[in-house]
Computed example of a mutant assay.
Amino acid sequence: MTAQWRMPAETEPHDCTWMAWPSAGYTLGDTEADADDARRAWAEVALAVARFEPVRMVVDPVAKRHARKWLGSDVELLEAPLDDAWMRDIGPTFVVGPGGLGAVDWVFNGWGQQGWARWERDARIARRVAEWAGATLIPSPMVNEGGGLHVDGAGTVLVTETVQLDPARNPGWRREDVEAELRRTLGVHAVVWLPRGLTRDYGEYGTRGHVDIVATVPSPGTVLLHVQRDPRHPDHAIDDALRAALPADWRIVDLPAPERLEDEEGPVDHSYVNHLVCNGGVVACTFGDPRDAEALETLASAYAGREVTGVDARVIFARGGGIHCITQQQPRVAS
C-alpha cells in the first residue's frame, strides 16, 4: 500500500530552507554590475532566512567562489550544475508521511517551454535535493512548479487554471486529472482553482499565472489576497474574479499592491503575497514603496508571534519572481 503523503503548511516547523545561487543567463543580466545586483539580492534573502533556520544553497561549481564571497560561512553550499536559480520551481515539493520525509519530483519544462528558458540541468535538481535531504523520491508525470501551488496543511490546495492546465505544460490534462495527481502527491482533498495570475506574469519572463504572487493561506480558512486598488493597473480588473473563486466561508485579508504601477517593461507584478514563512519569522518582499509598512503590519497580524523581516525584492522581481520563488522549505518530520 502506498504511503499517504501530506504537504505541511508553510507555517509548520522546518528543518531548513533550500535555495539555488544565480550563476548564468538572464538572472545575472548583461553586465558584471547586473550580476552583482542579483548576487546581492539572493544573498540578502538567504542571510535573512538564516536568522531563523538553516539555509542550504545549491551552487553551480563555476559560481562557488562568488557564492562564498557573498554568503560567508552562514549558509551551507552544495554543488550541482544549474541553469537558473528559482528553487521553488526547480526543486522538489517536500511532503511528510509514515515513511518520513518525501520529495515530489514534478516534471520541469521551463515554465511551459518558454523560448528563453534552459532546463536540462534544472530538471535534475529536485532529485539531487531529495538525495541530500534523505527524502523518499515521489516521481510525478505532471509538469508543475512549486510556485504554482499553496496548501493550508489541512487538505486544501490553491492552484491557477493557467498553470496546471497550460497546454504547454500538460496537454490533454483535465481538471480531474490534475486534482487526482495533487491528491496522490500532496495528500489534499480540496482543490481551489483561481482563474489566473497577475498580468505581468504572462509577459516574456512570466510563469503564466503562479499562485504564489496572488494568494496564500496563513491559516486554514483565511487567505491573504493580492489586491490592486488602482484602476489604472490591469490587475485591478481581475480582483472580482479571484474573490469569486475562493470558498465563500473563507476570510479574505487584502494585501494591497505597492503604489508603483509600472517599470520600464510595463505594469509591475510587485506583490507582498510572495513571502516565506520561517521558524519564528516571515521574510517578506519590500519595494521601497509607501505601502511597505502597511504590508509588513498586515503580515505581522496574519502570522502572530512571528518576527517579520522585510528584504528589498525589486531586483528579484525584475528577473521574474520574488522571495518565495527563490526559496523552498523542507518541513521537519515529527519524531
Score class of each variant (00 low, 15 high):
5 W>R: 05
9 A>G: 14
12 E>R: 13
13 P>V: 05
28 L>V: 10
36 D>L: 04
47 L>T: 00
47 L>W: 05
48 A>E: 13
58 V>L: 14
66 H>V: 05
71 L>V: 12
72 G>S: 10
92 P>F: 12
96 V>I: 15
96 V>C: 05
102 G>S: 06
108 F>W: 15
111 W>I: 10
113 Q>T: 14
118 R>N: 10
119 W>C: 11
123 A>I: 02
128 R>C: 04
130 A>C: 08
137 L>F: 07
140 S>N: 08
153 G>H: 07
154 A>E: 09
161 E>P: 07
176 E>L: 07
178 V>E: 01
178 V>R: 02
178 V>D: 04
179 E>F: 12
185 T>C: 15
191 V>Q: 03
193 W>L: 05
200 R>M: 01
202 Y>N: 06
203 G>N: 08
203 G>C: 06
203 G>K: 04
219 S>I: 05
220 P>K: 14
224 L>E: 05
226 H>E: 02
233 H>F: 11
236 H>I: 00
237 A>M: 02
238 I>G: 10
243 R>M: 01
249 D>C: 03
257 A>H: 08
258 P>M: 03
262 E>V: 15
262 E>A: 04
266 G>P: 02
270 H>N: 11
272 Y>R: 03
279 N>F: 05
280 G>W: 11
281 G>L: 09
282 V>A: 08
282 V>N: 08
284 A>G: 06
296 L>A: 08
299 L>P: 01
305 G>W: 01
306 R>N: 00
307 E>R: 13
309 T>Y: 00
321 G>C: 11
333 V>G: 10
